[in-house]
Amino acid sequence: MSTTEEKNKAVVARLIDAWNRDDLAALMTHWAPEMVHHARDGVLDAATVGAEMGRFMRAFRKIRMEVHSVVAEGDLVATRFTVHARHDGDYLGVPATHRQIRCALMGQLRIVDGLVVEHWGVADGLHLLEQLGLLPEQYLSATA
């Protein structure tokens, strides 16, 4: 593994640590000001992503990122996690249920000079919605 790949994996390790400490400010120190997130409906800037992450962190406490794999190649790092948390605040209009949730998350980051400049991510949102009581369980069997 090249030095660049090792450094990029270290950036991801610091991001995971910040998530696990519930520290949005620390997360954002690893993002380039021009960082973009490639979302389902287009591209989001760093401020928009930060606001959404803050909303998630306020609704879900005791976040723990369970790392399954981190693979680096050049300036790209691919990740696979399970996010564990407790629903302790309003989310999508659902008041706190205090339920433990888990959600599969896969992502890819492009890291340049130690900062994330691009991010792509896919979360198992259907499973999250089912755990919050917003989606009937039988819908999940169609997507398993």
Rank of each mutant, 00 (worst) to 15 (best):
L76M: 10
D124V: 12
T97A: 02
I101R: 01
V83R: 00
L140A: 08
A13K: 09
R55Q: 11
D22E: 12
L15V: 13
F60D: 04
L44N: 12
R14N: 06
A26E: 08
M106E: 12
L76N: 05
E137S: 09
V67A: 03
V70S: 07
N8W: 04
A13F: 04
E130S: 11
D90A: 13
L44I: 15
M106C: 12
G74E: 10
R110Y: 03
D113N: 14
L135G: 03
K7I: 15
D75H: 09
V12M: 08
G89E: 09
K62L: 13
R80F: 08
H119Q: 12
N20R: 00
V112C: 07
E137C: 09
A104L: 15
T29Y: 00
A142T: 03
M28A: 04
H127I: 04
H30P: 10
D23A: 06
L126E: 02
L76R: 10
V67W: 10
R14Y: 03
G107M: 15
T143C: 14
V112D: 04
L15D: 04
H87F: 14
T3K: 01
A26R: 05
R14K: 13
L76F: 09
G50K: 06
H37G: 07
M28V: 05
G74M: 11
A96E: 01
R102C: 12
V12I: 14
D23L: 13
L135Y: 07
R21M: 01
D88V: 14
R55A: 09
E5C: 04
R61G: 02
H119L: 14
V77H: 08
Q100R: 13
W120F: 03
R102P: 03
R55E: 10
M1L: 05
R21D: 00
H30V: 05
A85S: 03
W19Y: 05
T48I: 13
V67C: 01
L115A: 09
G74H: 02
K9L: 14
R21H: 02
M28H: 06
H38S: 06
L129Q: 08
L129T: 01
M65I: 15
I63Q: 04
A18I: 09
T29Q: 11
L128M: 07
H84L: 14
G50A: 13
T4M: 15
G93N: 05
Q138P: 03
R80E: 11
M1K: 12
R61K: 14
S69A: 12
T3Y: 00
R110A: 12
I101P: 01
A142V: 13
D23N: 00
L135F: 09
T82P: 00
L115Q: 01
V70P: 01
L126D: 09
G114C: 04
V116M: 02
P33W: 01
V36F: 10
V112T: 02
K7Q: 05
H68S: 08
L92I: 03
A32E: 00
V117W: 05
Q100C: 06
F81G: 11
G42P: 06
A39E: 04
W19T: 10
T4Q: 10
